[in-house]
Write a protein that binds this DNA or RNA. Structure first.
Lengths: 223, 223, 223, 223
DNA sequence: AATGAATGAGTGTTCATTCAT
DNA sequence: TATGAATGAACACTCATTCAT
C-alpha cells in the first residue's frame, strides 16, 4: 500500500505539474498576441484573462503579477526565436557559409516574428533590473553559436581580423532592422532582396580579397 | 482708434505668439528629461507640470492631451538630433569622406543623446498612426543629405553599385545600436573603438578595390 | 446483513462524529492563534487552511463560511476562558473570599489569554446579530457562579446592599482591563500589583465597615 | 504692485488652507458615522466619498490612503471626546467633587458617543504602530486633568493612599463600560442609575472613613 | 492667461466561495 | 471525505482631463 502510494505519488505530482505548465502556456499564449499588438501598457489583466478564457484570479495563481507575466512573455518570445534560429542553422562545415546561413535564418525568424521583435525592444525598457539582466543573458546565449562560427572563420583566415563583438551584433541588429524599420524597408525592397543585400553587404565587409571568389555566390547580390 | 488698434494688432499678435512658443518650449523642455528617463507611461501630467513650474491646466492650453505632448517631445527630440547631425557634417568635397564624417557625427549625437534615441524607439510604438507617419517623414527627411552623399558616391564610382536604401539605413541603424545595445557594447569596446570599427566595416563593404588605397585611413581600423 | 448493518451503524456513526469533531477542533485550533494575532480581517481562509494542514474546501465542510468560523473561534475562546475561570475558583465557604478568588482567577486567565480577550472585543462587532446574542448569553452564563457568590454575600450581609448587576460587571470589566489597557498598565504596575490593587479597591467599595477587619488581608494592598 | 501682491499672498494662502481644512472636515464628518456603524473593514472608500458628496479621487488629495483616513477619524473622535469632557468638568475647589464631576461628565460623553467609543476600541487594533502610539498619547493626555485631581485628593488626605494609575484608569474603563457592555447594562439599569451606582462604588472604594460623611451625597446611591 | 481642485472611469490585485475530481 | 484549481465581484488607488475661478 505504502509503496503503491509512493509509486503513485510521483505520477500524480507529475500530472499536476503538467497541468500547471499547460495553464501557464495557455495564459502566455493568450498574452503574447495582445502584448505584441498593443504593448503591456495598453493591455489589462482582464483582457488577457478574457483572451485566455480564464478568470483574472487564475492568472495570479501562475504569475505573481502583471510584471512577471510581461517578463515571462518577453523571455518566452526571445527563447522561441533563439530556438527557431538554432533549428534553422544548417550544419555547415564552412564557417563563413554557416554565418551566412545563420544570418538568413535570423532574418526569416524576424520576418515571421516581427511583432515579437518589436515587443522585446519595447518592453525591455519597462522591465525591472532583474528581468533586464535575464534578457541580456538570453541574448548573449542565443548568439553563442554564431559567435563560434565567426571566431572560427577569423581564426581560419576566411574572415579578416575584425572585432568579433562588433560584427556579431551588427549581424543581429541588421536582422532586427527588418522589424524595427519595416515601415521603411518594406515598401522599398522585398524581404528576399533585403536579406540578400544585407548578407552581401555584411560579408563584403569582412571576407578578405583572397576568399572573395570562393564566396562569390554570397556576394553576388551587391553586383 | 480702429486704425491704431489695427496697427497695434500685428506686433501684439507676434508678441502673443512668441510668448506662446516660449511656453510650449518650457513645457517640452521639462517633459523631455522625464520622458527620456522613465517613459511616457511612468510619467504623469502632474509631474510634468510640476517640473515645468506651471499648472496642469496650462499644459492643456498648449497641447490637446498627453498623447500630443508625448508626440511633440518625440518629434522635438528627433528634430534636435537631425539638427545636430546636419550641423556636425563638414562640407566635404569627397562624398565618401562626407559619408564617413556624417556617420561619425551621427554616432556622436547618439552617444550624447542615448536616452533620446531609446525614447524614440520606445514611444514610436505608443503613438497614433498620424504621429507615426510624422516620425517617419522626419526620419526620411533627416537622412536626405546623407542619401545625397551616398548617391553621389555611387554615381561617381567611388562606391560599389549597392542598394542605396539598404546601405543608408544600415548606417543609421548601426549608429543607433550604440544606444540600443549599449549594455552590450559599452563594457566591450570604447565609444571611439566602436565608431572606428563600424565605420571601417561599413565602408569596407561598399568601397570598391580601386579606391581602397585612397581611403586607407578610413579602413585602417579593421587591420 | 441488514441487522449487521444496523448493529454496525451506531458505532460507525459515533466514529464518524468523533472524526468530524476532531476535524472541527483541528481547524479551530489552527484559526485561533491566527485570529488572535491578526484579526479576522487580515487572515484569509487559505492561510487558516494552510495552518491547519487541510484544504480550503474542507473548511467549508465543517463551517458554512468564514463568518461562522470566526464566530466559532470567538465562542470557543470565551468558552475556554469560562472553563478556566470556573476551574480556578476554589470551593470556598465564605462568599466574599469566593468573590476575591474568582476575581483573581479571572485576572490570571485574562493575563494568559490576553490576545483572546482582545479578539472577543474586536470580533464581537463584526459578528451578525445571532452570533452576538450567543456571545452575550455565554458571557451571562459564565458569570453566573460569581453572581451567586455576590448575591449570597449581599444576602448574608457581608457585602453592602449594592446593585449586583453593576458590581458584577465591574469585576469582569476591570479584569479585562489588564488586556484592554495593557499598554498602559504593564509599564506601570506588575500583574501581581495590578490584581492586588484592583481586588482591594473593588472589595473596599462593597465590604461594610463591620466586616473590614475580617477581610483585612484582602484589603491590605490599598493602604 | 509688488507690495500689494505680497500683501495679498498671505490671505490667499490662508483662504486656501481654510478651504482645504473645510474639505478635510467634510470628508471626516461623512466618514465618522459610517465607520462608527460598520467599522473600517466594511466601509469602502466609494461609500465614504458618496456620503461626503465628493469623488473618490478627492479623498486622496486630503488623505494619503484609507489607513490615514481611519486614523484621522479615530483620533478626531478621541479628541472630540476629550474636549467634551474637559468642557464638562466644573471648576470645583474640592478635588473629590471634581473627580465625581469628571466621572459623571465622562459617562455622559460616553453615552452620547457610544458608537465612537466602540470605534476607538475596534479600530485601535487595525492601526499601524505609529497610529497606535498617537492614540495612547492622546488618551494619556486627556486624562491628565483627572489625574491631577486624584493626586491632589490623595495628597490632601481626602482619598486613601491608593495607586493613582490604577484608580484613574478604573474610572475611565468603568465609564467606557456603558458603551462596551451596553447590551448588558441598558436593559438592567437606567443611565442615571448606572452613573450614580458606579460613582458611589468607585468613591466608596477610595474615600477614607473620616471623609465619608462629608461626601455622603456622592456615596448615597449605594444605600 | 493661468490655476489647481475636482472628477470618475479604469487599474492591478485579493480572497471568500464553489465544484469537478 | 478531501482536494485545490477556478471563479469573479469587490477593493483601494491612480491619473488624464475638465472647469470654475
Amino acid at each position: 500500500m505504502l509503496r503503491a502510494d509512493a509509486a503513485a505519488a510521483a505520477p500524480e505530482e507529475a500530472a499536476r505539474t503538467a497541468r500547471s505548465d499547460a495553464r501557464r502556456r495557455q495564459i502566455l499564449a493568450a498574452a503574447v498576441p495582445l502584448l505584441e499588438r498593443r504593448g503591456s501598457q495598453e493591455v489589462g489583466m482582464q483582457a488577457i484573462a478574457a483572451e485566455a478564457g480564464v478568470s483574472v484570479g487564475l492568472i495570479y495563481r501562475y504569475f505573481s503579477g502583471k510584471q512577471e507575466l510581461v517578463q515571462a512573455v518577453t523571455v518566452g518570445v526571445l527563447d522561441e526565436m533563439a530556438r527557431l534560429v538554432s533549428q534553422a542553422i544548417a550544419p555547415e562545415v564552412d564557417p563563413v557559409r554557416q554565418i551566412a546561413g545563420a544570418f538568413t535564418a535570423y532574418c526569416t525568424v524576424v520576418r515571421e516574428n516581427r511583432q515579437a521583435v518589436l515587443l522585446t525592444y519595447r518592453e525591455s525598457n519597462t522591465l525591472p533590473a532583474e528581468g533586464r539582466a535575464l534578457l541580456k543573458e538570453l541574448a548573449t546565449r542565443s548568439v553563442a553559436p554564431l559567435r563560434e562560427a565567426v571566431e572560427a572563420a577569423v581564426d581560419g583566415g576566411r574572415l579578416r581580423p575584425i572585432p568579433v563583438d562588433v560584427f556579431l551584433y551588427d549581424l543581429v541588429t541588421v536582422a532586427h532592422s527588418w522589424a524595427l524599420k519595416h515601415w521603411y524597408f518594406s515598401p522599398r525592397v522585398s524581404f528576399e532582396e533585403f536579406v540578400a543585400a544585407q548578407r552581401a553587404l555584411l560579408l563584403s565587409a569582412v571576407i578578405p580579397p583572397a576568399h572573395r571568389t570562393e564566396y562569390a555566390d554570397l556576394l553576388a547580390d551587391l553586383a
